[in-house]
Design a protein around this nucleic acid. Structure first.
Length: 578
RNA sequence: GCACCCUUAGCUCAGGUGGAUAGAGCAACCGCCUUCUAAGCGGUCGGUCAAAGGUUCGAGUCCUUUAGGGUGCGCCA
């Protein structure tokens, strides 16, 4: 609809140019927007105001001219000039009805896949090996996974890249500690508490010189590909990722073992990469280290900023890894777009790594690199979100608390659910609420996390959306009638239908910007309009005529389909009853 | 010192490429359940969009400056 109006206006403008009413070299951007106020119609354009200057005429006069050239059509019922020269378009009800009737038959609900699908690498979650996932990993994991689903829905080839922290000097002591534990408990190796294991390793390393010596030896052996050390290291990776996989399962995150592409993957590429930079004079030696100087970044004296890609001891840094990683994603996957979901502190680092990759020709200009940046999670007091004792909140315990709180809220409700259903509801509502709390926010700044705000089930929350869905399902349980052809019989219905037709636009826009909150806002508004419809338009009651009943059932069905699909794109499940 | 990000109602947040009277939820107060799930709906209250300039028909949005907050700045990741 919006595109139709846009094309219409584009055609009129070019005909004005052909007739020399408008100078041919006039460049204007034709904008059609959704109106905020019903009095302004359904769509509006400011084109007459934009043409006022080049045509040297009053905007309202221009608007008249444009309107007189709109051909007869079945999509627009009425056009008005308003205010300083806005053109307001009113959609034809019958056209909207048809569009929604078609949507209901379409598995994609009117969403049109991209004309040219892209290969998109999405780097997200990225937990560390030998550590438990902490609450701060939730942002990257949840937002990244939603963007994955949205882009796939639109037909893109999406590569999930779980860039785990599986490399570094700490692995020497971890291997030595694992070995020690295996010797002590040969049969049953218990490593459920990775934090304790890490602390233990550190303690031995600090207090036992023999252990420390062995640890240092193991680092070197691991890096030179020693089979025993590699095996032990792989064991650590597996133990960690098995635990993380359990978290992913609980949170309904689509990552699998196959998506693990840790830092170690790029290890063999580092030396050739730095050699390449040196041989092409892009990197220079300085005080024993190999440095790349970037004109786009200044150091404290205003000179090009130096980034070390190889230490004076020959070791590599994480910038080197990220350059190699970018190169790999372009060469190996043929990425058109790379999105890294990492916290905002990494912003400058990522820009520098990409700058170097571009400079070296590893990253072509037409490949988009984006930082899906976000801030820290703060408590209600505005300080970093911590446990009462000031420690890091483990993600597992955080999810446990979400379920406990959801269970408490559930216990106040009077419903007839079986114990199995009840626990399913608690789980689904809790995980939905936790994920939605992250997904519905746009800010790249830090954000305040508040249990009460998230689990009150009011306002823009997942439970509200889930409730709207299960409300529809309950209608269908109460009637034998089946949805029929939609025909608008109340203003609440018209508002809802118009909202339906914007699903396509919203999904595409969320994909383009890698911002799931746009979809959240839409679904919340959709659910709100449905609630209003539900309050004021009886559906299955006796006095409702059959044609209206079946139409309203179809409207309910369409709401449910969009809610289920939309929440599915966010990785949030729906419930038939709650 | 240099750079990047941020500042919207008492609180938590929305406000695509500049558009018409800046929107929700919470909190506070007032209504609506013999009627499809009240985990809902309606209403009232609440704002110098951090401040000052500039660009233009028009600025929360773009530019400059200032204040306040956050983050990052060569051999950790």
């Amino acid at each position: 609809m919006k595109e139709y109006i846009q094309n219409l206006l584009t055609g009129i403008v070019s005909s004005l140019k052909n007739e020399n009413i408008l100078s041919a070299d006039t460049q204007i951007r034709i904008m059609v927007e959704n109106t905020k106020d019903k009095a302004h119609g359904d769509f509006a354009s400011n084109i007459a105001m934009m043409l006022a200057r080049p045509m040297k005429k009053n905007p309202r006069e221009i608007a008249e001219l444009l309107i007189s050239r709109i051909p007869a059509n079945d999509k627009i019922s009425r056009v008005e000039i308003a205010g300083p020269g806005f053109i307001n378009f009113f959609a034809n009800k019958a056209f909207i009805e048809n569009q929604v009737n078609d949507m209901l038959k379409d598995p994609l609900l009117g969403v049109r896949p991209l004309r040219t699908p892209e290969t998109v690498v999405i780097d997200y979650s990225s937990p560390n090996v030998a550590k438990e996932m902490a609450v701060h990993h939730i942002r990257s994991t949840v937002i990244g996974d939603a963007v994955v689903r949205i882009l796939e829905f639109l037909g893109n080839r999406v590569i999930r890249a779980n860039h785990i922290g599986d490399w570094g000097t700490q692995f020497g002591m971890l291997i030595a500690c694992l070995e020690k534990k295996e010797e002590e408990h040969a049969s049953s190796l218990e490593l459920s508490d990775l934090e304790a294991f890490y602390r233990e390793a550190k303690k031995y390393y600090d207090e036992d010189p023999q252990f420390a010596e062995k640890a240092r030896k193991y680092v070197v052996k691991l890096q030179s590909g020693d089979e025993y050390c590699r095996e032990m290291w792989q064991k650590l990776v597996k133990i960690t990722m098995d635990q993380n996989q359990e978290i992913y399962r609980r949170l309904n995150i689509s990552l699998t073992e196959k998506d693990v592409m840790g830092e170690s993957l790029y290890n063999p590429m580092l030396k050739p990469l730095v050699d390449d930079l040196i041989s092409r004079n892009l990197a220079k030696e300085d005080q024993g280290a190999i440095v790349v100087y970037l004109d786009n970044f200044k150091d404290k004296d205003g000179n090009p900023r130096g980034v070390i890609v190889r230490k004076s001891d020959g070791g590599f840094l994480y910038t080197t890894t990220d350059i190699a990683c970018t190169k790999y994603r372009v060469e190996h996957f043929g990425a058109n777009r790379i999105i890294v979901f990492a916290d905002s502190r990494q912003h400058e680092h990522l820009l520098m790594a990409w700058d170097i990759a571009k400079m070296a020709g590893y990253l072509p200009e037409n490949v988009l690199t984006e930082h899906g940046s976000f801030g820290m999670m703060l408590g209600k007091d505005g300080k970093p979100f911590k446990t009462r004792s000031g420690g890091t909140v483990k993600l597992k315990e955080f999810l446990d608390e979400a379920e406990n709180r959801a269970a408490t809220l559930m216990s106040d409700r009077n419903n007839n659910l079986s114990p199995e259903e009840k626990s399913k509801v608690i789980h689904t509502v809790a995980m939905g609420a936790v994920k939605y709390a992250d997904l519905s926010k746009n800010r790249t700044t830090d954000y305040i996390f508040d249990w009460d705000n998230m689990l009150t089930f009011d306002g823009n929350t997942a439970p509200y959306l889930q409730y709207a869905y299960s409300r529809v399902q309950s209608i269908f349980r109460k009637t034998d009638a089946i949805p029929g052809k939609i025909s608008i019989s109340a203003p609440e219905e018209e508002d809802l239908l118009l909202k339906f037709t914007k699903f396509n636009e919203v999904v595409n826009s969320a994909a383009e910007k890698a911002m799931p909150h746009l979809l959240c806002t839409y679904l919340y508004e959709l659910a709100g309009l449905f609630m209003k419809f539900y309050e004021s338009c009886p559906i299955t009651k006796q006095e409702v005529p059959d044609n209206i009943k079946t139409s309203r059932l179809a409207i309910s069905e369409c709401t449910a389909k969009i809610l289920k699909t939309g929440l599915g794109l966010l990785g949030i499940e729906t419930l038939e009853r709650m």
